[in-house]
Every structure is written in structure tokens, then in C-alpha cells.
Amino acid sequence: MSTSNSLLKQGPLVQARYNDNNGITLAWNMEENIEAEAVYHSVLPELIESNSTLLDVQIDPAGAVFTRTVSPGRNYYHVKFTNGSISTINDRMIYTDGVINFRDMGGYLTEDGRTTRWGMLLRSADLHELSEQDLHTATALGIDWICDLRSDFEVASRPSPAIGHAINTNIPFMAEASPEEMQKIGHDLHAGYKAMILNTDKCALILNELLKEEQDTSLFHCAAGKDRTGVVCAVILLTLGVPQNVVIEDYELTNLAVEGLMQRFLSGSNKGYQKYMDQMPEFKGAIPEMMKAAFIQSALEAIEENYGSFDQYLKEGLGISAEQRTALQNKYLV
């Protein structure tokens, strides 16, 4: 009879790092006389060997590198050690046919030693092309609130379908995001990122929404899930106490989705985005290096320049009290 993970000893802490070409690196700190003996893939958060796939991977003393297994929805990797313990790793990428750059912000260590909760803070590109299977996948995530950061023009061009019981709120994050505004930001993303993080009214509104008791699982998205979503998610993670270097690493994960995103934007079938691409000729015919750490660093520099520190930005810029920040951390950290 298979034994579930809940009845087994928890193994060593395993960290996952994502690589190009759909690769993943699992790394652990090995105790003496303990070795990893197998890695399994599963769509279940607990290891049930009869429902899991034993992966053919080379296991080294400190980790394993292999190609991620793509299954619809959530995926998990289970590392089995020689002492009988099991370590389970959530794949933060969520696989769907129609949504690009869909991922979970769980599992990040904070400066006080806690971890962001899995399954509560999600981010993605727009939801317009969700298939029927995708809708089942998204509904199973139990999303309570969808925060759509796109402009009215974008929402009208590519409306989102209803997902389960989720409340869909449109919070346009960059004025009306006209083609002219998109062109300006496209030419100077550093200035654009600074302007976005200093959009204090919208940032404060989003953090206050996250405080609401009825909203446990939230999904943030814009068109590509990279610029507006990147800034908003950086503010959220920093508020929770995730170190700045880790926030930048989360931001840069969009690099793994750039090719798919640009193919969507450059496709003539997406007429709404084609209007934007017509205003940005530098993107035509090539996939640029979109996600540079320097862009999000520009936003963080704007905080330092205008408020001196992130703590002061929260207090003076967003009006978030120490008590509210603690409440957010207690809700979204474990």
C-alpha cells in the first residue's frame, strides 16, 4: 500500500531554480549519511508512488538538474531520501494552454524566516485565451479575487472569462494605457517603472484589498504579466518581507515566457495588441531582451529617491500602517 507524504518524515529543505529550455534545478543541504535516492513527478501535493512518475534523472550529492514535466495545472516534485524522508517541491509554474506566464509566488523565504504561502498569490498574463480545460484548472485554484491591471481599451479588446467564484476587479494601472503612453514606456522602461511604483493610490488600493478577509487567493495580471504585474507583485513581496534580491529573481522569471509572449503580441490575430505593436517598431521582427533586472531596480531606486526606504514608502506613500503590514504578513506567510 502506498504511503502518503503526510505520514512520512519531512526531508531536507529543497530549493528550486528555473533554467532556460524548461529546465529545473533542485538543490538541498545534505545531512551526514543521508542521500537522495529518487525524484518523482506528480500532480498531487503528497507522494503516492502509484500515482506518480519516477523520473530518470542524475542525482548528485547536493541536487539534481532535469527537464520539467508539463501537466495541466499544478505540478509537484517529490525527492525521496535514503532515511525514508520525503521533500516536496511545488512547481511555481502553472500550466495552461491559453495563459502565458502563469505562476505562484509561494515558497519565498522572508527576512524573518517565514515563507510566502503557496496558492494564495498568483500572477499571469491576460486570461482571454483560457480553454475549457484551462477554466477547470483555474477554477480548481480557488481564486477569490482577480486584479486586472489593464486599461479599459485592453479589457474591451481581450475580455476575461468568468473563473469560478472569483470577483474580477479592473484597476487600470497606467492611466488609460493609450498607444502613445505605451510607446513612451516602450522607449524608456526605466522611467516607466519609476512612474508605476510611484502610482501610490493604486498600490495602496491593492494592498488594502489583500487585507480583506474574504479574499484568500488572488491573481494579478496585465497584458503580458511582466511590467504592471511585475511592479505590483514586487510591492506585495517586499511588503511581506521577501528580500530585494529574491523579488528581482521572481521578476526575472518572466524571461522564461518571453518567446511565447512576443509571439502572441506579434500575431496578426491579436488585433488589440497589434495596435500597440504598430506604435513600437523596435519590437517588430525580433524577440527583445525584455526582462532586465535593471528595470525593476529602477522602480526600487525611485522609492529610495522619494521616500528613503521601503518602510517609509509604505507608511508615507501608501498609508499602510505597521499594524496593517503585520496583518498582511500574518495572512500570507507561514
Results as ranks from 00 to 15, higher is better:
185 I>W: 06
91 D>N: 13
131 S>H: 00
141 L>C: 05
292 K>Q: 15
126 D>W: 08
177 A>G: 08
56 D>A: 07
80 K>H: 09
103 R>D: 08
310 F>Q: 00
59 I>L: 13
145 W>E: 01
139 T>I: 01
315 K>C: 06
187 H>W: 11
131 S>Y: 06
71 S>T: 13
65 V>S: 07
156 A>L: 00
75 N>M: 08
213 E>F: 12
234 A>T: 02
146 I>C: 02
9 K>Y: 05
267 S>H: 01
50 S>M: 10
125 A>Q: 06
41 H>P: 03
84 G>L: 08
103 R>C: 00
318 L>H: 04
153 F>N: 09
265 F>N: 03
191 A>I: 04
269 S>E: 15
54 L>F: 03
184 K>Q: 14
75 N>G: 15
155 V>A: 11
173 F>A: 10
104 D>N: 10
4 S>T: 13
92 R>M: 04
21 N>F: 11
109 L>W: 07
309 S>M: 09
21 N>W: 12
77 Y>E: 04
108 Y>A: 14
12 P>G: 00
331 K>D: 05
265 F>C: 02
244 Q>T: 14
16 A>Y: 07
122 L>F: 10
19 N>K: 12
38 A>C: 02
155 V>N: 04
27 A>F: 11
33 N>E: 15
28 W>K: 07
65 V>A: 10
141 L>V: 05
319 G>E: 01
66 F>D: 01
206 I>F: 14
305 E>Y: 05
200 T>P: 05
160 S>M: 01
68 R>F: 03
325 R>P: 00
148 D>V: 03
279 Q>E: 15
157 S>W: 10
197 I>N: 01
13 L>D: 12
198 L>Q: 02
143 I>N: 07
6 S>R: 13
247 V>A: 02
54 L>T: 06
306 N>W: 04
259 E>S: 09
